[in-house]
Design a protein around this nucleic acid. Sequence first.
DNA 1: CGCGGCTGTGACGATATTGTCACGAGGTGG
DNA 2: CCACCTCGTGACAATATCGTCACAGCCGCG
Lengths: 229, 229
Amino acid sequence: MSKILVVDDELDISELVALHLARDGHECVCLTNGLEVFPYVTSHQPDLIVLDLMLPGQDGLTVFKRLRADSRSRTTPVIILTARAQMSDRISGLELGADDYLTKPFSPRELALRISAVLRRTQRVQAVSEVKTGRFLLDRKNMKLFLDDTPVDLTTTEFKLLATLMENDKAVHTRSELLREVWGYSDEVATRTLDTHVKRLREKLGDAGRHIVTVRGTGYQFCVTLPDS
Amino acid sequence: MSKILVVDDELDISELVALHLARDGHECVCLTNGLEVFPYVTSHQPDLIVLDLMLPGQDGLTVFKRLRADSRSRTTPVIILTARAQMSDRISGLELGADDYLTKPFSPRELALRISAVLRRTQRVQAVSEVKTGRFLLDRKNMKLFLDDTPVDLTTTEFKLLATLMENDKAVHTRSELLREVWGYSDEVATRTLDTHVKRLREKLGDAGRHIVTVRGTGYQFCVTLPDS
DNA sequence: CGCGGCTGTGACGATATTGTCACGAGGTGG
DNA sequence: CCACCTCGTGACAATATCGTCACAGCCGCG
């Protein structure tokens, strides 16, 4: 469900945590060295990071500060793990804007619950702006489409058309409905504009263009799953 | 700065907390009875609620569940106060989506820090003073840009524009959004001001100017990494 | 007071996007 | 099987958007 990065030099803790997270359906990656964190985060974009402060290579607090200073990871949720003796570190972490922290020793169930709570907050925001269905991810806020995680450049009209079609899987949109919602036409017009745009959209989508299904005499629908043929 | 509602039947705790919060510039209101919370929240819309579980009238957990069930308060940040003996309640609170919790006895400073951390997440009150990403280092405090560790002289408007674009990697900023945030325009204006400044900024950045990407029909985005081409 | 730096503006050209047209392909009903 | 209707497509023109440039105004400083 979500990509969780766990950074802890104690392998028994990481493995126990990973087991719990996998049970919740998350994809979990474990790192043990502070120097590995930043390169991993900027290239893999995890949904959440569990970060121990006591790390070899580069200590957790330095790693955290760097994550918060970089525009690619400054909003990535981070839960900091602290030892009881490190009360001052935990307060420093809070001051830097960690999303949560947990004091060792902790129960894996509690960590899993905190992770769920943080993800719920951050994914609630995402749910409003993103539509993810099948091979498609539609980012409304940024007017971007990703197909198989690859960005596809769409014009604003193409994006609006696709977004309208994807709003409800398999919903059939009439031509007049699409012309009204995407183009603002208010009355019946005989125009090939819609056809041309559907064509251009299908071209840009390549083989995934067939997810836009023509309903003859009515309009078009978007189908995530297609019958094999 | 923010309206904080503190709900605790122990007045000495509430008053100590209120004193600390006032020191941080917050406006603090204290309630002692669980039945008073919901009516107050729906009419006053506090920015954050500190909620003790042990309450007369209506216990804190029931109050919290009601807050989360109502659309007016579903997203209001809540920090739950628990006694050490109530470990099961604290986990129940997390499962319901509390933003944080604190176990009694606690230091008022720690609560104040947690409140700041939660408000920071929900309100984006503070911006990181330094943004370092890729070849760029943006020093907000001194209004300085360093490109490949070399200082680049920017005017105040150029700096504000770049800082806004760099806030979140790949976030697309519309023209009207940029005109509002950098120039303070409040309505739609047809102006080439933004284009001219983007041009001047790109000139000063040299080859790194291509990190400012035009999104036709929408505006601009800042991309730390660019596709090779 | 003059000069230089900064900023905003409008005109114009370049580029991208969009709409239209004509024609053919494909589907459907009689 | 044929006529008719609907849709797809390629080419082209129109329109919208962005980039650029030159200039003017403002402000601060020497």
